[in-house]
């Protein structure tokens, strides 16, 4: 039986890279005694796949992994409880859902992600009061540009690209955790971006472009990026990105609700 597990990753765990998170879950499953189905071959490995790697330094409220278990009588509540008991306090389970046997794995269906971008507490002094008070307005203006051209770097080449269409949302929002006496910023940026195997827009790239738009220097160390959700597209067409303005429009559903 296939299951989809939504998990969060915060605190010091943001320094643990994607491959190590995989190893972490493999070992956690073994400790929980929930048996994961093994692949064939001389050195069998657990059948487990992640929706999308999260870069070192980023946190998440909702990343996903799909896993095939040996025992198909287990309830999602049971799995949640047993596996959560093996978590380390900074990586936690959020939700477990059952998948049909023919469900596509999350890696192949993820098509958009939500991110929150905060100024880190120790970097607040680098930013003016106006930066925060004008954040919503500036975010709107940023998105109103005709084009948003960025330089997308790959291992092989650099190319210019207009990513405006692939930014589904970009706005300033109030930081709910903020109070006047703490060191968190009063507001932050929320963005929903195209993601996945066809085209992947990184939040860092959008931030860099936004800073350029504001004519302020960009330093990736100034911001904490937190992924909040990952989506599949109900209207997905293989090898194609559906946007809000394309011929076939995207219809986004959080991965946990998509079967």
């Amino acid at each position: 039986m296939k299951y989809r597990i939504k998990f969060s990753k915060h605190g010091s765990m943001k320094f643990i890279g994607h491959l190590d998170v995989m190893r972490y879950f493999q070992k956690a499953f073994r400790r929980s005694k929930i048996e994961v189905k093994l692949s064939e071959g001389f050195s069998p490995h657990q059948i487990m796949s992640f929706a999308s790697p999260l870069g070192i330094g980023l946190t998440t409220d909702g990343d996903y992994l799909d896993v095939t278990l040996v025992d198909d009588t287990l309830t999602t509540d049971y799995i949640f409880e047993k596996l959560q008991a093996e978590m380390n306090g900074e990586i936690n389970l959020v939700h477990v859902s059952e998948l049909s046997d023919d469900a596509k794995n999350s890696m192949s269906i993820v098509c958009a992600c939500d991110y929150e971008v905060f100024v880190k507490p120790d970097k607040l002094s680098k930013f003016s009061k106006e930066y925060f008070s004008n954040l919503s307005e500036n975010a709107e203006k940023f998105l109103e540009q005709e084009t948003i051209v960025v330089t997308k770097k790959t291992k092989k080449s650099e190319k210019e690209m207009d990513i405006k269409e692939y930014i589904y949302e970009f706005r300033g929002v109030e930081n709910k955790a903020h109070s006047s006496d703490d060191s968190t910023p009063p507001n932050l940026l929320f963005m929903r971006l195209t993601s996945g195997s066809v085209l992947n827009i990184k939040p860092e790239l959008v931030m860099e472009s936004f800073c350029k738009f504001l004519s302020i220097p960009y330093d990736f160390l100034d911001y904490q990026i937190n992924r909040t959700e990952m989506y599949a597209d109900k209207n997905a067409v293989k090898g194609q990105v559906n946007t809000l303005t394309s011929e076939i429009k995207c219809d986004l559903v959080p991965l946990e609700d998509f079967n």
Binding site: S12, M13, F15, K27, R31, E90, K120
Partner: peptide, 27 residues
């Protein structure tokens, strides 16, 4: 959630090779 205290700042940890060497909290 209260984050674990770390001796090194984000800036340092993100600029060195394998920051996981310095954060502890292993199983």
């Amino acid at each position: 959630m209260q984050n674990r205290k770390l001796a090194l700042s984000d800036d340092i940890l993100l600029s060195v090779e394998k920051p996981a060497r310095y954060i502890g909290n292993e199983i």
